[in-house]
Design a protein around this nucleic acid. Sequence first.
DNA 1: AAGTCAGACAACCGCAGCGTG
DNA 2: ACACGCTGCGGTTGTCTGACT
Length: 249
Amino acid sequence: MVQQEVRKGPWTEQEDFKLVSFVGLFGDRRWDFIAKVSGLKVAGDSLNRTGKSCRLRWVNYLHPGLKRGKMTPQEERLVLELHSKWGNRWSRIARKLPGRTDNEIKNYWRTLMRKKAQDDKKRREAASPTPSSVDSSISSNNHAVDPHASKKAGEESFYDTGGHGNGMIIGSTQQQDQGHGQGFPMDDIWKDIDFSEEGCNFSCPQVPSPSWEYSSDPLWVMDEESLFCPMSEPYFSCYAQQGSVSLTG
DNA sequence: AAGTCAGACAACCGCAGCGTG
DNA sequence: ACACGCTGCGGTTGTCTGACT
């Protein structure tokens, strides 16, 4: 059989829909399996994505517990705090922020650092108009992950500053919670699913579902200290609302 | 109104770790 | 003990969108 081309790039609504369906059937662990099975035109047509791609899409976008929207000041503070503790351990940090993904936090941090780097640069230029060397602090590869190492004063990569070592206060004025305009397309997807499959429960397909038990969801299952309770948050309520999906068509 | 820029978000890639045969 | 396959993580890049000039 000729291997179909693996699709890349942005996901379409249909793909999302299919992925959600497959995850409902097989759980959110067996990505390679899902990718393979879905490539075999099981559900009408195929989803020619790699397991990796499927996982990423699910984790970062389709997962029902995701918050989306701007970080709250509390979350921002927590990110700084944890980053200063753990460095670029995004997934670990994300576990402390229910509803946030490592990707989201990573992006947030990156934006923050870029902004900071720009500010620094401006300030330095204003202070001493010496050319060159000005942005040495951001250009070179200070990518050490260890927050305790490699942090010299005034020298951090814009990507990894090791947190607030330099008095960076994220008082952030942006408190808007989520929602933030864009009509979160997942709602539509879930709605669609809901509509088309009324009456059947997503969370308990007849298939011996490996890991669809969200009480122990890996995403925000906490490690060691101070556990957040994933059940308390949008996570579960979200499921209560959206969880009715079936795949047995 | 059009063009530019910056921020936010989405997605891919490479690598490391882990489980299994 | 080793090879292999799969999953997860971190880094990076591309795209979209809203704000600003």
